[in-house]
Amino acid sequence: MLDKILYNTVLCQTYSPCGKYLIAGNIYGQLAVFDLDRILNPVVELLTPDFNKPKHIHNLETGNQICSLVATDKFLVVGSVNVIYGWDWKAILGVKLSKPSWQIKISSKSSLEHIDVNSLCLSDDGEKLYAGCGDNNTYIFNLEDRRQLSVLSGHDDYIHSVHGKNDQIISCGEDGIVLLWDLRSTKFHNKIEPHKNSKVCRPDIGKWVGSAALRDDWIVCGGGPRLALWHIRSLDVATIFDLPDHGIHVSYFHDDCVIAGGASKHLYQLSYSGEIRVELPVSATTVYSAVLKTNPNVLAIAGSSPEIDLCTSFNYRDQILHFR
């Protein structure tokens, strides 16, 4: 048990719809539920030594790792191995985890094949679920009845990240390819191969792309290749971010900046022009998840550590949570 605590890795996080709870999933099939009200607004007289530990830790019966999380108004959606679960929030916030409200099985060619659901994303209207998986496919499901709507096939290796914006989806994976999809078709309409661009490639780290996100006319992506901002229409590099990292696993747009992290002891806030606005020290040696909510602002940063950094400002850590 001591070894499990020491080598805990948190792969994913999300917030409850009310914003009062942070949910984190790790490689041991555990869901930690943190009470943010108690942590960020403690009553000194009632403070206990374990105030920054989970209110509850739930264990998946399978013990399989929790690869991805996303929250809807009704459900916590959990991506694991060969299956996507949906639990209602009453079950997640309760003391004991009941059976899931529903589950979606990812079909495999063999009973021995393990398909990790590496990335989950909701459509803008919250009606569709996008799942980027270890069988090289992105699946689109109707959340109301969990019916599979389509399969996006175009990657040659497993998918690390999928993100949807407006009527477009972007996916990236171990094959080093970033694909752009239109929801009206199951064929990708554009692709970027960062490892083939001499300005961003880093052969010593690899060609894999760990994260990609869309916004208006821009794509931000990175992995083995350097984190870079690409123009959607021209597919040219507009900005290359000069970061001292050894691989990017997190990248997304927020307000007028880019948030990014990975195999580095920092999470970065960057301007579109490439300026490092904030270099925030983190507990994990590799960041796999950095989730942000607003009103009020809370940023939670997790990765290869049992510690999760909690920030209400991007300039410093307010608290360090303990997933143990």
Rank of each mutant, 00 (worst) to 15 (best):
K109S: 12
S110D: 08
S111G: 03
L112G: 02
E113Q: 14
E113P: 03
E113D: 15
H114E: 09
H114Q: 14
H114V: 04
I115P: 05
D116I: 03
S119W: 03
S119E: 03
L120V: 02
L120D: 05
C121A: 08
C121T: 07
L122Q: 07
S123A: 13
D124H: 11
D125E: 12
D125F: 04
E127K: 15
E127Y: 11
K128E: 08
L129G: 06
L129V: 06
Y130V: 00
A131T: 05
A131H: 04
G132R: 00
G132P: 04
C133G: 08
G134N: 04
G134F: 00
G134C: 01
N137K: 14
T138C: 09
T138Y: 00
I140H: 00
I140M: 13
F141R: 03
F141V: 10
F141W: 09
N142V: 07
N142W: 06
L143I: 14
L143Q: 00
E144A: 10
E144P: 01
D145R: 14
R146Y: 15
Q148P: 02
L149D: 13
L149E: 15
L149A: 11
S150K: 13
L152I: 12
L152D: 13
S153K: 15
S153P: 09
S153L: 07
S153C: 11
S153W: 07
S153E: 14
G154S: 10
G154M: 05
H155F: 06
D156N: 13
D157C: 06
D157S: 15
Y158C: 02
I159T: 12
I159K: 09
H160K: 04
H160Q: 05
S161P: 03
H163W: 15
H163L: 07
H163C: 10
H163K: 11
H163A: 12
G164A: 15
K165F: 10
N166F: 06
D167A: 12
Q168W: 11
Q168H: 14
I169A: 02
I169G: 05
I169K: 01
I170P: 02
S171D: 02
C172N: 10
G173K: 01
E174W: 12
D175C: 02
D175S: 07
D175W: 00
G176R: 06
G176V: 03
I177T: 13
V178S: 07
V178D: 06
V178M: 08
L179N: 11
L179F: 10
L180R: 04
W181K: 03
W181T: 09
W181H: 02
D182H: 14
L183A: 01
L183P: 03
R184T: 12
R184C: 03
K187G: 05
F188W: 09
F188S: 00
H189S: 15
N190H: 14
N190W: 07
K191D: 10
K191T: 06
K191Q: 13
K191L: 09
I192W: 07
I192T: 02
E193R: 10
